[in-house]
Design a protein around this nucleic acid. Sequence first.
DNA 1: GTCTATATCATGATAGAC
DNA 2: GTCTATCATGATATAGAC
Lengths: 207, 207
Amino acid sequence: MLSTMSTPARATEDRADPTSDTAHRLLEAAAEAFADRGFHATTTRDIASRAGLSPAGVYVHFSSKEELLYQLSREGHEAARDMLVAASAGAGSPTEALRAIMGTFSRWHAEHFRVARIVQYEFGNLTPEHRDAVLGLRKQIDAVVRDVVTAGVATGEFSVDDVPDTTLALMSMAVDVARWYDPEIKRTPAAIGEAYADLGIRLVTAR
Amino acid sequence: MLSTMSTPARATEDRADPTSDTAHRLLEAAAEAFADRGFHATTTRDIASRAGLSPAGVYVHFSSKEELLYQLSREGHEAARDMLVAASAGAGSPTEALRAIMGTFSRWHAEHFRVARIVQYEFGNLTPEHRDAVLGLRKQIDAVVRDVVTAGVATGEFSVDDVPDTTLALMSMAVDVARWYDPEIKRTPAAIGEAYADLGIRLVTAR
DNA sequence: GTCTATATCATGATAGAC
DNA sequence: GTCTATCATGATATAGAC
């Protein structure tokens, strides 16, 4: 988010870089590598070469391999949370909100399946401090969904046996998209989102 | 399954070992380590010491660390498949079958969450040959569930938008149990199984 | 079948020139 | 800020005694 602005603005370059340049390339390289092979199977040499740097070049921008993981995990969690908050806030009813949440969340897990895998499966490779920070974001994400389910039960739109358990099952469906999604398949992220919005409604509706 | 019988039967020992002895201890040690820390983060030294062996002792029983992973992954997939086949075969209707399948499958992912994590998340660390072998088992597992959903649609008990997509979502809920389950939590595997049997029925039932 | 000892190599990270 | 060179460590796997 905050650009370091260590280089002067380039009038001749019309493509703006979202974060300061090579650091951003390194994050993208690390995201690909971590998602494809896992944190521990990824070497700093691999990350460096994918970003076009020497092995030592990484450490100018990040103090460790775990620091790269943390940045990706934190940004990924924040993006997911912000999307869910927006989806929930823009809805006129719990039913609409749940459809928006499930559609958005599952679509995100398909479109950004690399970051999503890091978010979901590499949590345990963070340092204890970083784990704590991310845990706070996870609680926020859970709360957004749980509040919608609670609201729907209150209005009578939903009927569930247990709110926290149902919330977890809803998130499980969306989260698991990142495990099986493959960009080669025919289903588009948008279609997945629509299907999971329907499935989410079914889960909170007794026949 | 097949005991090597390299040691004579011990009349004084009343506890029978399912597989030949230390090999079994090594598999259990590897299962714990792989599930807790992941395949690549686990060292052969770690596995050996958990099994009470020296680092070299592993290689008498398994030719490589990946061989341990393959044994665990294959046995885990086979166990899951056999359970689903039995659950499906013992049911009198698609509704009963789906309840049995979802209850069994999600309960298994809780009770055996260590093996389940290896099954679900370490697939990519198998050699290409072993991946192919396991892929065959995965297709069998998918077919069991898909057939039940198809049968339920045929009898009119179920109403789904798309059979393969719904099958996948059903499995996602159960599979994801292995990700969040923690033996410390209050919910028992049996309670999880019951809850997910209900949720599975909701997914195939339109209001 | 298990051990001690070790070969061989890759890893994360650093030093210091440019 | 990037490089080349390298350190220190720890990895998988093997050799050979017992």
